[in-house]
Computed example of a mutant assay.
Amino acid sequence: MLEGLKILVLEDEFLIAMDVEQLCREHGAVDVALARNLEEAGDGSDFDAAIVDMLLDGVSTLDFAARLQQAGTPFVFASGYTDNGEVAKRFPGVTLVGKPYSGNDLIEAVAAACGRVPSSCA
Protein backbone atom coordinates (compact mmCIF):
# COMPACT_ATOMS: atom_id res chain seq x y z
CA MET A 1 0.00 0.00 0.00
CA LEU A 2 2.89 2.37 0.68
CA GLU A 3 5.15 1.23 -2.16
CA GLY A 4 7.90 3.67 -2.99
CA LEU A 5 6.97 6.28 -0.37
CA LYS A 6 9.29 8.20 1.94
CA ILE A 7 7.52 8.60 5.28
CA LEU A 8 8.24 10.78 8.30
CA VAL A 9 7.15 9.36 11.66
CA LEU A 10 6.91 12.08 14.29
CA GLU A 11 6.60 10.10 17.54
CA ASP A 12 8.28 10.60 20.92
CA GLU A 13 7.72 7.06 22.24
CA PHE A 14 10.64 5.01 20.91
CA LEU A 15 8.96 1.57 20.85
CA ILE A 16 5.88 2.90 19.09
CA ALA A 17 8.07 4.70 16.55
CA MET A 18 10.02 1.50 15.86
CA ASP A 19 6.78 -0.47 15.38
CA VAL A 20 5.42 2.16 12.99
CA GLU A 21 8.69 2.16 11.04
CA GLN A 22 8.54 -1.62 10.65
CA LEU A 23 4.87 -1.49 9.60
CA CYS A 24 5.60 1.13 6.95
CA ARG A 25 8.53 -0.85 5.57
CA GLU A 26 6.49 -4.08 5.52
CA HIS A 27 3.92 -2.25 3.40
CA GLY A 28 6.45 -1.00 0.86
CA ALA A 29 7.81 2.31 2.13
CA VAL A 30 11.34 2.81 0.77
CA ASP A 31 12.44 5.22 3.47
CA VAL A 32 11.08 5.84 6.96
CA ALA A 33 12.59 8.56 9.13
CA LEU A 34 11.88 8.74 12.84
CA ALA A 35 11.77 12.09 14.63
CA ARG A 36 11.21 12.38 18.38
CA ASN A 37 10.77 16.16 18.38
CA LEU A 38 10.07 19.03 16.03
CA GLU A 39 13.74 19.90 15.62
CA GLU A 40 14.51 16.39 14.32
CA ALA A 41 11.54 16.59 11.95
CA GLY A 42 12.84 19.66 10.14
CA ASP A 43 10.20 21.07 7.82
CA GLY A 44 9.00 17.67 6.56
CA SER A 45 9.50 18.67 2.93
CA ASP A 46 11.69 15.67 2.07
CA PHE A 47 8.84 13.20 2.58
CA ASP A 48 5.87 11.92 0.61
CA ALA A 49 3.74 11.50 3.75
CA ALA A 50 3.89 11.83 7.52
CA ILE A 51 2.48 10.18 10.62
CA VAL A 52 2.23 12.84 13.32
CA ASP A 53 1.70 12.40 17.06
CA MET A 54 -0.22 15.45 18.27
CA LEU A 55 1.85 15.96 21.42
CA LEU A 56 5.59 15.38 21.78
CA ASP A 57 6.66 15.61 25.42
CA GLY A 58 3.78 18.02 25.96
CA VAL A 59 4.57 20.15 22.88
CA SER A 60 1.81 20.52 20.30
CA THR A 61 2.57 19.51 16.72
CA LEU A 62 -0.45 21.27 15.24
CA ASP A 63 1.58 24.14 13.75
CA PHE A 64 3.94 21.59 12.15
CA ALA A 65 0.91 19.75 10.74
CA ALA A 66 -0.42 23.04 9.37
CA ARG A 67 2.87 23.54 7.52
CA LEU A 68 2.60 20.02 6.08
CA GLN A 69 -0.93 20.80 4.96
CA GLN A 70 0.13 24.08 3.33
CA ALA A 71 2.93 22.27 1.50
CA GLY A 72 0.48 19.62 0.25
CA THR A 73 2.18 16.78 2.12
CA PRO A 74 -0.36 14.10 3.07
CA PHE A 75 -0.37 13.12 6.74
CA VAL A 76 -2.39 11.46 9.45
CA PHE A 77 -2.43 12.05 13.16
CA ALA A 78 -1.66 9.03 15.35
CA SER A 79 -2.20 10.05 18.93
CA GLY A 80 -3.48 9.12 22.34
CA TYR A 81 -5.11 12.56 22.35
CA THR A 82 -8.44 11.77 20.77
CA ASP A 83 -10.49 14.92 21.33
CA ASN A 84 -10.66 15.49 17.61
CA GLY A 85 -12.98 18.52 17.68
CA GLU A 86 -10.06 20.92 17.21
CA VAL A 87 -8.42 18.58 14.70
CA ALA A 88 -11.60 18.20 12.64
CA LYS A 89 -12.10 21.97 12.63
CA ARG A 90 -8.51 22.90 11.83
CA PHE A 91 -7.68 19.91 9.59
CA PRO A 92 -10.84 18.80 7.78
CA GLY A 93 -10.34 15.51 5.99
CA VAL A 94 -7.22 14.55 7.98
CA THR A 95 -7.60 11.23 9.77
CA LEU A 96 -6.91 10.90 13.49
CA VAL A 97 -5.96 7.33 14.37
CA GLY A 98 -6.29 6.94 18.14
CA LYS A 99 -3.77 5.05 20.25
CA PRO A 100 -3.75 2.21 20.80
CA TYR A 101 -4.37 1.49 17.13
CA SER A 102 -4.06 -1.55 14.96
CA GLY A 103 -1.30 -1.54 12.39
CA ASN A 104 -3.81 -2.08 9.61
CA ASP A 105 -5.84 0.98 10.64
CA LEU A 106 -2.74 3.15 10.60
CA ILE A 107 -1.40 1.87 7.27
CA GLU A 108 -4.82 2.17 5.62
CA ALA A 109 -5.16 5.75 6.89
CA VAL A 110 -1.74 6.71 5.49
CA ALA A 111 -2.47 4.98 2.20
CA ALA A 112 -5.83 6.76 1.94
CA ALA A 113 -4.19 10.13 2.69
CA CYS A 114 -1.83 9.43 -0.22
CA GLY A 115 -4.67 8.42 -2.52
CA ARG A 116 -3.57 4.77 -2.53
CA VAL A 117 -6.89 3.20 -1.40
CA PRO A 118 -10.53 4.28 -1.51
CA SER A 119 -11.42 6.39 1.52
CA SER A 120 -14.08 3.83 2.46
CA CYS A 121 -11.22 1.46 3.37
CA ALA A 122 -9.70 3.84 5.90
Rank of each mutant, 00 (worst) to 15 (best):
Y101C: 14
C24L: 04
F77D: 05
Q22Y: 05
D63K: 06
E11W: 11
S79P: 09
A35S: 05
C24D: 00
K6W: 07
L34H: 09
L38Q: 02
L34N: 06
I51G: 08
A65L: 02
A29H: 02
F14Y: 15
D53A: 03
V59H: 12
F75R: 04
V32P: 06
S119D: 08
A29D: 02
F91R: 05
G80Q: 07
M18D: 11
D83T: 07
M1F: 09
L15D: 15
S45C: 09
V110N: 14
A29S: 04
F75H: 05
G93M: 05
L34M: 06
Q70H: 05
M1I: 10
E86F: 11
A17T: 06
I107R: 08
V30P: 08
A112E: 09
E13N: 12
S102D: 15
L55F: 15
V117E: 07
L56K: 06
R116G: 14
F75A: 05
I7K: 10
M1D: 14
A17M: 08
V20P: 01
S119Q: 06
L106G: 12
C114K: 14
Q22A: 10
G58H: 09
F77W: 03
L15Q: 13
S120A: 12
F64P: 11
D63Q: 08
A49D: 00
A88R: 07
V76L: 04
L56G: 06
A111Y: 11
E21G: 04
A49W: 00
M54R: 13
E39C: 05
G28F: 03
G28L: 02
D46H: 09
T73S: 02
N37W: 12
S120P: 02
Q22V: 05
G103Q: 08
A29K: 01
R67I: 10
G4C: 09
E13W: 12
T61I: 12
E108S: 15
E11C: 13
A66W: 01
A112Q: 12
T82C: 11
M18W: 07
T61D: 05
V30H: 12
D105K: 15
F91L: 08
G28S: 03
L56Y: 00
D48K: 01
N104F: 00
G44E: 03
V117W: 06
V20W: 02
A71Q: 13
I16W: 04
R90E: 11
N84P: 00
R67P: 04
D46W: 03
